[in-house]
């Protein structure tokens, strides 16, 4: 799959999950932030796995932890909610990556 396709697919899959799991008053903010966070982590993960030949699992874990910190620090979700959003969204796309 070409890179831009992978990026758009990831965003398309993760955003509904992020919006669904974010508290209702924060959904709009979570939507915008979710796009930004994916635009940040996805290219770096792509680089790390395909060009730097780093392991898939450590990279996926690093992406999840980074997004967790960003959802907590910038979106201001609570720690448990940020962990839930980051783990669920990345868990689903990670599972999908085995299919595509």
């Amino acid at each position: 799959m070409p890179y831009l396709g992978a990026l758009l697919l990831t965003i398309a899959v993760e955003l509904p999950i992020v919006v669904a799991l974010a508290p209702r008053p924060m959904r709009r903010r979570a939507l915008v932030d979710g796009v930004a966070f994916n635009l940040f982590t996805h290219p770096l993960a792509w680089l790390a796995v395909l060009h730097l030949c780093l392991g898939w699992w450590p990279v996926e874990a690093a992406v999840t932890l980074t997004e967790l910190a960003l959802y907590r620090g910038l979106t201001r979700l609570s720690w448990p909610r940020a962990a839930l959003v980051a783990c669920a969204a990345n868990g689903v796309t990670a599972a999908l990556s085995f299919l595509f």
């Binding site: 890179y3 831009l4 930004a36 635009l39 940040f40 290219p43 770096l44 910038l74």
Partner: peptide, 19 residues
């Protein structure tokens, strides 16, 4: 920090990836 995420995070990541 949102600006920084965009300018110091997203943009360099997109440039480094070749996108």
């Amino acid at each position: 920090l949102h600006w920084c995420l965009f300018a110091f995070g997203v943009m360099p990541a997109l440039i480094a990836s070749g996108a």
